[in-house]
């Protein structure tokens, strides 16, 4: 959505047009739901978070100043709603070890990416690897690499410092790589 369209929808919502708010929210609904799902790991909870966050955004829309993007602002609300729903004042302290050791003798992934995408279990493999991450890494990675937000935007949404975000994203990426490696290295053996 263009920023000007978005601003117009915000103004129209504030002027009392409920359809403008629906048009404003709908493009972000899949992202908010996805974010909530990363935090809660529960589709029913994620739906509740989507509803909570949407209504909170409506109520608080007069306080949106445009210093951050509407998306970042909305995602921050959704993150808080998800954490509240889990009855957690703080995130789980569960973390990956800071020190990651490069595998001594990693094998290259030399298959054809198109063929990988076509594999039936591809989606499942990616989901399971993502599930194996502790929540804060999963959420950070998801915002950065699936949603495609910048490090700075992720820091704003998660309430973390920029170095903390960068460190978590790196650890998440390397952990996921390690999880996926057996599947995509094996293509070599399959192909030979």
């Amino acid at each position: 959505m263009l920023k000007t369209d978005q601003d117009a929808l915000i103004q129209a919502t504030l002027a009392g047009d409920p359809q403008a708010f629906q048009a404003l929210i709908e493009p972000h609904a899949p992202g908010v739901y996805g974010l909530a799902l990363q935090i809660t790991r529960n589709p029913a909870e994620a739906e509740e978070v989507l509803q909570d966050a949407t209504l909170t955004a409506y109520t608080k829309l007069t306080t949106f100043r445009g210093a951050s993007s509407f998306k970042t602002w909305l995602y921050r609300i959704a993150t808080n709603a998800a954490l509240m729903r889990l009855r957690k004042a703080k995130r789980s302290p569960e973390s990956l070890p800071e020190n990651w050791d490069r595998p001594a003798d990693p094998r290259p992934w030399t298959g054809d990416p198109e063929a990988w995408f076509a594999r039936e279990e591809f989606h499942q493999i990616l989901s399971e690897a993502l599930d194996s991450l502790p929540e804060i890494y999963r959420t950070t990675f998801w915002l950065r690499d699936v949603e495609g937000l910048s490090n700075l935007e992720v820091a704003e949404i998660m309430g973390l410092s920029l170095p903390a975000v960068k460190s978590r994203i790196l650890r998440a990426r390397l952990h996921l790589r390690d999880q996926l490696a057996p599947y995509f290295e094996e293509r070599l053996r399959d192909a030979s």
Partner: peptide, 30 residues
């Protein structure tokens, strides 16, 4: 090898959005 496969990992997740919004969820939100 590790850097290449990590970049490939990132591309996988960029391309394959692991979460989709179920139509029912959207309908109930509306």
């Amino acid at each position: 090898v590790v850097v290449d496969s990590t970049q490939q990992t990132i591309r996988f997740y960029e391309k394959e959005r692991p979460v989709r919004l179920p139509p029912d969820v959207m309908r109930r939100l509306q």
